[in-house]
Design a protein around this nucleic acid. Structure first.
Lengths: 221, 221
DNA sequence: AATAAATTTTAGACAAACCTAAAAAATTAT
DNA sequence: ATAATTTTTTAGGTTTGTCTAAAATTTATT
């Protein structure tokens, strides 16, 4: 139960987890790309992780995490997202600045630290980007959110997440006064450029580009 | 200005700083002892740190940090003590539990993180053990504290620091209701066993052993 | 289906940080 | 002052995580 993995191993596990969310299975090149490392290095690490029974892997076939590996991944993601929440809500970081720092903080392994941090932050369920924070058992709250693009006209919805963490996105959202939690509805869709007209309560209508609408997730109310 | 040292290098620098506070200069064996490593490993690292101009060192003579090295040491100590303060004041850790965790957190290098943490904590001047926290320029507040043993009779003083971080000490202090900041005076000293009788305002007199008196630092008011 | 192209793995090296054993230098004791 | 002891350094290895270049395997193309 006292798992003890190197920083490097943890980074691989986390990356594999994220990649396999999409494809179900991961390839050597994909992983090398994500970690900015070479395929040969990935192969080396795969052997190690396989030996530790964290993943299912056969040479030249793809690979994916074992049950155990997934557990480890979720605990790393839990740490990462709790720290992001801390950085934004307590230390006043912008959500676009927290990723790298959280990337380091997540490797500080201490169950007690994470439990107490979670308590201090009052058991947040979502990180500042709207991604769910796994609980101690790896369970995550579901946010049945959809892309703003898919939201029907005149339907009340709440912004729950963003699909990018770029500071340009943050800048734009701040300018338009849209945040996680903002309640809005789509008034019109313009086919010509796929732009949208939004209405936020007590505020004048806002116009939003297709790109921006794609970057926003919402939860119908 | 963007110093970038490995975790290992930082641990050596910090250990050298602490050791040279006492002796002014440090020996290979001392340092190996402090870091639970072998003298040969120390020699290897000394060469590296010398090459980086962090210390003055000549084979077979002792060594001590350069000005630059001292700066680095102080910034590590700043990070360590700020995190300790955070863990105790915000996350409700006991002061006897924070050292190991802070030992890891201190290596997360981000100026912004530390500045914001310092702000969040309201620029604390002393850590939970009463040790001063260096500011951004390495300056530390002075606490002209003395050992409780040396405090004259009937002199008001405030507990400022403890000389040990053992949980036994914490347990005893909690039982006797003494904390950092407690105001007290010594009423009697018993030569037979060097025990003390203390008076804390609004409380009945307490008796304190020599060992405990030695572990407490106070600042006369 | 045979060949070309891309992917993945192996083989062999390297740097960091550690180790053990032996040599060198300094210190202490006779 | 010389010998014995201790301290420190050097020499040579090990492990982890990376790399490059070449070989093996799979996938795509003609």
């Amino acid at each position: 139960m006292i798992s003890n993995f190197s920083q490097s191993e943890e980074n691989y596990i986390k990356a594999i987890y994220h990649l396999q969310q999409a494809d179900g299975s991961v390839t050597t090149n994909e992983l090398a790309g994500m970690l900015h490392t070479k395929p040969a290095s990935v192969t080396d690490m795969l052997k190690k992780l396989k030996a530790k029974k964290l993943l299912h892997y056969e040479r030249y076939k793809g690979f994916h995490l074992s049950i155990e590996g997934k557990k480890v991944a979720l605990s790393i993601i839990r740490r990462h997202r709790l720290w992001e929440y801390f950085l934004v809500s307590k230390l006043q970081f912008g959500w676009d600045e927290v990723h790298e720092v959280a990337e380091e903080l997540e490797h500080v392994r201490s169950h007690k630290l994470i439990d107490k941090l979670d308590f201090f932050l009052n058991h947040p369920k979502f990180d500042p980007h709207g991604d769910p924070i796994p609980d101690n058992n790896g369970k995550m709250s579901m946010q049945h959110h959809i892309q703003l693009i898919e939201l029907p006209l005149n339907t009340q919805a709440e912004v729950t997440a963003v699909n990018s963490q770029s500071s340009e996105l943050l800048e734009l959202l701040q300018h338009k006064n849209i945040h996680i939690g903002t309640k809005l509805e789509v008034k019109r869709k313009f086919g010509f450029d796929n732009s949208f007209e939004l209405k936020i309560r007590n505020k004048p209508a806002v116009n939003i580009s297709k790109q921006l609408a794609q970057a926003l997730n919402v939860k119908p109310l």
